[in-house]
């Protein structure tokens, strides 16, 4: 596992895997003594914001924001305005598809939630295919052909996922079956039927004594 060993935490929201990609300022970071590789790997937050590359650095003069830029290896999240398609229907489909595709370099996020470079590339790719007229299925097939089944957050039904998909239904059926058997087996233990004539006679005999 990749997360920090030195600063483990019960809820460290790390996204280190996206860090090196979106960084572009490795050398700067390397020189900063207090900001070791170790701490950086462990503590890059999901929430952290900053920018990729140098696009913003030229433009922001404020010292503090400059600090953010130099020292921040991670970008914020997800979809940026420049990615959004002008056709709202297409954009909606793109979002739907994105939510089902895993960001390959992140811990457990969809490309819709992640801002790793790879996730951005995939988002742009998805939108490109959609604008080129692909159906949702075709887009997903294409992404799977490039990255494998791992990219699907909702695994396809196949021989290797049969147990996963069958589990809820199977258990429910087994449970209901067990219950039916249980209920059926019960009557035998119910209070006995009415007394037979013989038993009645015996009781009368006993009571009569």
């Amino acid at each position: 596992m990749s997360c920090s060993r030195i600063s483990p935490s019960f809820l460290c929201l790390s996204q280190e895997s996206s860090a090196p990609k979106s960084l572009g300022a490795d050398s700067v970071l390397g020189k900063d003594g207090s900001f070791t590789t170790r701490t950086r790997r462990g503590w890059i937050p999901l929430t952290s914001t900053g920018m990729r590359g140098g696009e913003g650095r030229r433009l922001l003069s404020k010292v503090l924001l400059a600090l953010f830029l130099i020292l921040t290896p991670v970008s914020a999240f997800a979809v940026n305005p420049d990615e959004v398609l002008s056709n709202p229907a297409l954009e909606h489909r793109a979002r739907q598809i994105s939510a089902q595709l895993r960001c390959m370099v992140c811990q457990n996020q969809s490309i819709d939630d992640s801002n790793a470079e790879l996730a951005k590339d995939l988002r742009v790719l998805v939108r490109q295919r959609l604008t080129d007229g692909d159906t949702d299925g075709q887009v997903i097939d294409y992404v799977v052909s490039r990255y494998g089944e791992f990219v699907l957050l909702n695994p396809r039904l196949s021989t290797k996922t049969i147990i996963l998909w069958a589990m809820p239904i199977g258990l429910l059926v087994v449970g209901i079956f067990a219950l039916v058997v249980f209920v059926r087996s019960r009557p035998s233990r119910r209070p006995a039927d009415a007394l037979s004539a013989e038993e009645k006679a015996r009781i009368d005999e006993l009571l009569g004594q």
Binding site: Q100, R102, S110, G148, E149, N154, T161, I163
Partner: peptide, 24 residues
């Protein structure tokens, strides 16, 4: 439980990687 552990089990047993995420 199955959804959480399935990717781990599958990878250990067959080496194949799949994801089970929020949509599932």
């Amino acid at each position: 439980l199955t959804g959480t552990l399935y990717p781990l089990a599958l990878e250990t047993l067959t080496g194949e990687k799949i994801s089970v995420g929020a949509p599932f």
